[in-house]
């Protein structure tokens, strides 16, 4: 019995640690912010979490493969733009369900294309993912600003808002979308050949190739899926704000990186689990909502995220040194 329990605990250390941290966060805001422990807070967390969550899932895959995708937020914007464009062609506010579905397909295709181009350059040219995704980010931002002239695109059929604001059995629809996406990632990374290969390639690309894995295909797929997941986030943003603006969600980039590292993902690739990252996300969104309730200045919050990222990295460094020395 006890052996079974320790086996259960083993390898779950980071999840436990995160749960403890979550409890600390809840207690802190509960004590300092009177309105924090109310249903409304958690309702708002449930609605805000999904955009950030989907983008984090989009960031997770490239990091596991030993890279990075700095273009996720702008991929989301451009995908949203593609959807908006199709809907406008189909009559704007009068557009039917068919056009909306077509728009969704267009958005996903645009996400896949943006990711695919990055994947091909990373996998076949061997260029640095930071550089490639940075170039893609600059390109997409420019493209978006060129197409929208820096303004908002709006005018969608009202039923679209149900996706962004509706609930099913009391659970917000966006949250359900995130849950499905996270579950998909969990299965893909934990139980598929592709996921297996992604982890291996993230640790050592050449050794993985020598073992007979088509690492180029894996890398291209990593960035395609990252692009598609960004597009899903873009679609969700469109339905929540009933508009598309290039640059929306730009600040999320830092938080997605933060969520991955807080969730125990190795910055050099090869290690990291979806469940822990999702838990880290919940914590971060709770902190964000808590800060919001405390009335923290928007830019002060930005700075705090930066400090938090550094703190997490330093904490990991301390933890590593400690656990490295402990057994010897």
């Amino acid at each position: 019995m006890r052996a079974a329990f320790t086996r259960l605990l083993r390898g779950q250390g980071e999840i436990l640690g995160l749960l403890v941290f979550f409890a600390v966060v809840l207690v802190f805001f509960g004590l300092t912010t009177p309105r924090f422990l109310a249903a409304g807070t958690f309702q708002s967390i449930a609605f805000q979490l999904p955009e950030l969550g989907l983008l984090t899932l989009a960031m997770l895959l490239p990091i596991l493969s030993g890279g990075l995708n700095l273009a996720i937020t702008f991929t989301a914007n451009i995908a949203g733009l593609a959807m908006a464009w199709v809907i406008q062609l189909g009559g704007g506010p009068e557009a039917g369900l068919m056009m909306v579905l077509l728009g969704t397909a267009a958005a996903l295709a645009v996400g896949a294309l943006a990711g695919g181009v990055m994947g091909v350059v990373v996998a076949f040219v061997g260029a640095h993912p930071i550089l490639v995704s940075l170039a893609m980010m600059i390109f997409l931002r420019g493209l978006g600003e060129f197409l929208t002239r820096g303004g908002d695109i709006s005018g969608f059929p009202p039923f679209i808002a149900t996706i962004g604001h509706g609930t099913v059995f009391g659970i917000p629809l966006p949250l359900l979308i995130l849950l499905v996406a996270a579950l998909l990632w969990q299965v893909l990374l934990g139980r598929s050949r592709f996921g297996f290969s992604t982890y291996m390639a993230g640790s050592n690309l050449e050794a993985t190739r020598y073992s007979g894995i088509d690492t180029r295909r894996v890398l291209v797929l990593v960035y395609v899926l990252s692009g598609v997941m960004s597009a899903v986030a873009g679609i969700l943003m469109l339905t929540r704000f009933n508009s598309v603006r290039v640059g929306h969600g730009e600040a999320y980039l830092l938080i997605t990186v933060l969520a991955c590292f807080l969730g125990g993902v190795d910055p050099f690739g090869g290690f990291g689990r979806t469940a822990a990252v999702v838990l880290a996300l919940v914590i971060l969104q709770t902190i964000a909502s808590g800060l919001n309730l405390m009335g923290a200045h928007q830019h002060l919050a930005t700075a705090l995220w930066g400090v938090f990222l550094i703190a997490v990295m330093v904490g990991r460094w301390v933890w590593q040194r400690w656990s490295w020395r402990a057994p010897g």
Binding site: F196, Y199, M200, S203, N204, A207, T208, Y210, S211, G212, I213, G270, F271
Partner: peptide, 14 residues
């Protein structure tokens, strides 16, 4: 030959 940081199990299964 091996993906050193990864598990024994994964290195055999790959």
């Amino acid at each position: 030959g091996l993906v050193q940081p990864q598990s024994i199990s994964r290195n055999i299964a790959i």
